[in-house]
């Protein structure tokens, strides 16, 4: 049902918790099932240096949040903004069809973090 990567991500839960010096924070929620993901991002001069997540959700949501961080750390903000749900699903080696909302919640949290930074440049300026 779940790919080996999804099982590893939920088993190891890398980058869990929050980082106190995040430059960007974004969260998203699926109102139907209640999955919630919060991402904490710390950008350096031009790239994402560190990231962590907190989540309250099913296997798919937890794996998606952890997997998304694997995808984006080391990328520029623009590259992060271009990450799609499909890319994340490929990175996760797939999710069951009825569980893909987990990836959508994680990507929405990323978009929210980056959008919030744009809207509040003083608060979220990665430089």
């Amino acid at each position: 049902m779940y790919s080996p990567k999804v099982r590893r991500l939920v088993g190891e839960m890398p980058n869990r918790g929050r980082i106190d010096d995040a430059t960007h924070v974004g969260q998203s929620e699926n109102p139907i099932c209640g999955d919630r993901v919060v991402l904490y991002l710390r950008f350096g001069r031009d790239r994402l240096e560190k990231a962590s997540f907190q989540a309250d959700g099913c296997t798919a949501a937890l794996a998606a949040a952890a997997g998304l961080l694997e995808l984006i750390v080391g990328r520029t903000a623009l590259e992060c903004a271009r990450i799609t749900t499909d890319q994340l699903l490929i990175h996760l080696e797939g999710l069951p069809r009825h569980k893909t909302h987990g990836a959508e919640v994680a990507v929405a949290a990323l978009q929210e973090a980056l959008t919030a930074a744009t809207a509040n440049p003083q608060e979220n300026d990665p430089a």
């Binding site: 999804v6 939920v10 088993g11 190891e12 309250d56």
Partner: peptide, 11 residues
């Protein structure tokens, strides 16, 4: 969530 805990324990 029970299911996520199940997967984590299985790992």
């Amino acid at each position: 969530r029970g299911e996520a805990l199940l997967v984590a324990l299985d790992f």
